[in-house]
Simulated assay, not measured.
Amino acid sequence: MTVQQCHEPGTAVAGVPFGRAARELELKPREFELAVQLGHVRTVAAGPGGRRRVPREEIERHTARPGFPDTLRTRVWVVGTAEGAELMGISPARFGRLARAGCFAPVRFYVNRYRAVVWHYLAADLVEFADASPDLLTGRTPPALRTALAEREDRRARTWRARRIDQLLALAEDPWERAAVMASVLGPEQLADAVPDPCERAYVSALRPELAYGRSNAPAGREVIDRVTLAAAPDEIERYRRRLTVALAEARVIRQAPMPKGPPVAGSQVVPALMAGEPMAATSGAPTTGTGGSPGVRQATPSGFRALWSWLRRRRAPLARD
């Protein structure tokens, strides 16, 4: 789904700070964060430093909709493997095979205490896939899918990267920022090879957004996160390098990269997502834990679970168009 952000370059637009907007929309901080990333809640540039806010009319648009706040919450309803399998009516094992094959893209992840990556998915995506591919939910796994699973690597990180890059590109307002987004999935050696000019490389490095929130300070945790955020397969690396080359050519037409004033900054100095909004509690990337459930996953009651399932199926087409 395309992220839609409203802005007038060079102008400051009054709006509601992110923390207050989340409260008025009755969203938890991580739900609000995801709503902005997915384009369900539009933001505007507001003041110096790239800070963004939510227009008052955007909040009123959501609060005036029938079913508020459940309709908006359902759009950002995130599930793990067990809940996703239950939602689709399949076993967790089959769900895992479909996810590893890249049939649907994760929307976020975290690294648990055992340094294992735990993936989360949008419930709406799973319902859409279930409606479009019912033959993959029952019976024997089709031969083509079995072959793909045997021959290809786990594609969950790759599909997550593609989704995250699309989100960040939609938020980038400057060609150099767009180049930095493309560079964010390349390792240091690949970036040095793709951007040989030291001034350009320093500028792009300073603008690189963080793909994942809450990066670990522990070396082992960083290694796991890097395996998710950095392109790995040769064809994927080459594809992002080509896109970076195109983005750099477009950026040079606008202006040349400035001379670096200091060492490159590992992280974004622009607004890749929520970081330029008002600081919010519980947005550090440490997953929230519901009662008796998996970290970061909203726990629904059985009756509520069935109601949301029915609602998602009825609303699948409008969701795809929004």
Rank of each mutant, 00 (worst) to 15 (best):
P198W: 05
G96R: 13
R65M: 14
A220F: 07
M1I: 09
V297K: 01
R73K: 15
M280H: 04
W77R: 07
F32E: 02
M88W: 07
A273D: 13
L244F: 10
F68M: 08
A307Y: 07
R161M: 08
T283N: 08
S91E: 13
W160L: 15
Q37W: 06
L211C: 02
L126F: 07
A192P: 01
D174P: 00
G214H: 08
T43V: 15
P69A: 13
A276D: 04
K261E: 14
A35R: 01
P302F: 13
L191F: 01
E151G: 08
A21D: 06
L169Y: 01
L230D: 04
L168K: 05
P234M: 12
P258D: 05
R97C: 13
P258Q: 06
R140T: 14
R298Q: 13
A320F: 03
R156M: 12
A266Y: 12
N217M: 11
F104L: 03
L87Q: 06
I237P: 00
P66G: 15
T229C: 11
R23P: 00
P143A: 15
L169R: 03
A132S: 14
T74I: 04
I254W: 03
M1A: 13
Q269E: 10
V79E: 08
V195K: 02
T138S: 14
A162Y: 02
W119D: 11
R306A: 15
L312C: 12
T43M: 05
S205L: 09
L72Y: 08
Y114V: 10
E200K: 01
R52S: 05
Q5D: 06
Q4L: 14
P272C: 08
A307N: 11
A157G: 15
E223A: 15
V271E: 00
A257H: 04
A22F: 04
R161H: 06
E86K: 11
G47Y: 00
R56G: 12
R252I: 00
I237K: 10
F68Q: 05
P258S: 08
W176Y: 06
E86Y: 01
I225T: 11
A307L: 11
F32M: 09
E189A: 15
R23S: 14
R140L: 12
A46N: 11
V181H: 01
A194V: 04
V181M: 01
M275W: 04
M275D: 10
A101M: 03
Q5K: 07
V253C: 00
W309P: 00
A266N: 12
P287T: 08
A144N: 05
R298I: 12
A233C: 02
R313K: 12
A232F: 06
L169S: 02
H7K: 00
L211R: 01
G290F: 13
E128N: 05
A233T: 10
L207K: 00
R314D: 14
R75M: 12
L230T: 10
P29V: 06
R30W: 13
A194M: 02
Q167G: 03
I237Q: 12
A172Q: 02
E189K: 11
A99N: 03
R314W: 04
Q37F: 07
A21R: 02
A172C: 08
C199N: 14
R215N: 11
L168R: 07
L207V: 01
L149F: 08
V253M: 00
